[in-house]
Each structure stands twice: as C-alpha cells, then as structure tokens.
Amino acid sequence: MMKQFAKLGLILAIFAAVACVGLSFVYAATKDPIEANKTRQVNESLKDLFADADEFVPTDVLSADPSIIFQTAYQARKNGVLLGLAVKAAGSSYGGQSVLLVGTGLDRRIVGVRVLENKDTPGLGANAKNASYFVDKANRITFPGQFAGKVVTDAFEVKKDVIPITASTITSKALTRIVKAAGDAAAAWIENAAMLAPETAPETAPEGGK
C-alpha cells in the first residue's frame, strides 16, 4: 500500500518536474520581449502626452484615495524645465484593474489620458481603449480623449461633463474617477513644487490661488 502511494507520488513528481523545466525555458525566452513591450508602451504614451519633453524623471506622488494606486509618476521636463506630470494610476473598473496614464500640465489642465490596461467586455467597456470608438461622433473624440484640456477642479461627473461609453456606465465612471484622482494629485504636487523651487517653474505657472 505504502509502496503504491510512493510510486504514484513519484510519477506525479516526474510529470510536474518535466513541465516546470519546460516552462522555465519558455519563461526565460519570453521574459525580455514581454518587459520590452510594457516599457515601450509606457514610453510611447509618455512621449505622446508630452511631445516636447526630452526627459521623464520618475517621481513619487501620493494618492489621496486608497482605492486608486499611483504605480509611478513621471515629471516631463524640457531642458530641465518642468512641463507637467504624468501619473500612472491603477484603480478597479468593471472587468478588474484598469491602468491609465494621466498627464497634467502646469496650468492645472489635463494634457491627455491614455488607457494602458483595461480588461473589459469587447464591444462595450473595452471601447475605452479603442482609438476608433468615438463618444462624440461629430467631433471624433474618444472616451479618454475628451479629458484633454479639462481643468482638474471640474466636476468630472459622468453624463454631465463626461460623456460615457454607450452601455458602459460602470467602466466610464471608474475610469473618470481614476483620471480625477490622478489629476488632483498631480495639480497639488505641481503647486508644491512651484512653491519649493520657483526657479524650475516657468513664469506662466499659476500661483496656486483659488
């Protein structure tokens, strides 16, 4: 009886070990391309948001909302002068975690929003990422595209000043919340930075008055 168990265990262990060895080879071979894909995507989006910037300096920005996590933030700089702040923010949405890259300018306006990760229903919530899906068909504006130019102190309310994706109100609300949180935090950070080191901020930067 004992012998039988040992034999079965051994057979199972052999199968598992062979599978592990095989997988480790595939993992090693695909690790670099997967990493490269991810960093390329972030870099492309950063460059896309702040086309003028020549360097992106990683920075820590704190999230006021515990349900939204700022994975990283980058200062977009040109010749050492701050242009704005890009925050990579993650929060939960309809189909799980969504990751957005939100760019905020020195004038407290959203420069742009890029959807990096959004697992959602194809044809519905997944349209948040679809570059040819327009919430405003007449002006060809995409869902993330509509945030560009908004002031962070705006209401950010779906169906009021934010046009939702058809039949995907939950996704629209969740993504809007992430944009708002990232925009607020970035604006606060920029204000602080302007006070601490006025020489790095250009003269047109707002004085933080209300």
Binding site: A19, G22, P33
Partner: peptide
C-alpha cells in the same frame, strides 16, 4: 496510472496553456 490521470492531465494542459499565454504576451501583446 489510471488513478492519477486527472492531475497529470491538468499539469500537461496547464503547461501548454502557460506557454501559449507567455508567447502571446511577448509577440502579440
């Protein structure tokens, strides 16, 4: 062995599924 076939099937299927998952992430992100 007959009594062990299910766990072994799962190991084999899971291994190939992980392979295709990783390959897709790397080359068809």
């Amino acid at each position: 062995p007959n009594s062990l076939r299910m766990p072994i099937f799962i190991i084999i299927i899971a291994a190939f599924t992980t392979i295709i998952d990783l390959v897709m992430q790397a080359y068809f992100p």
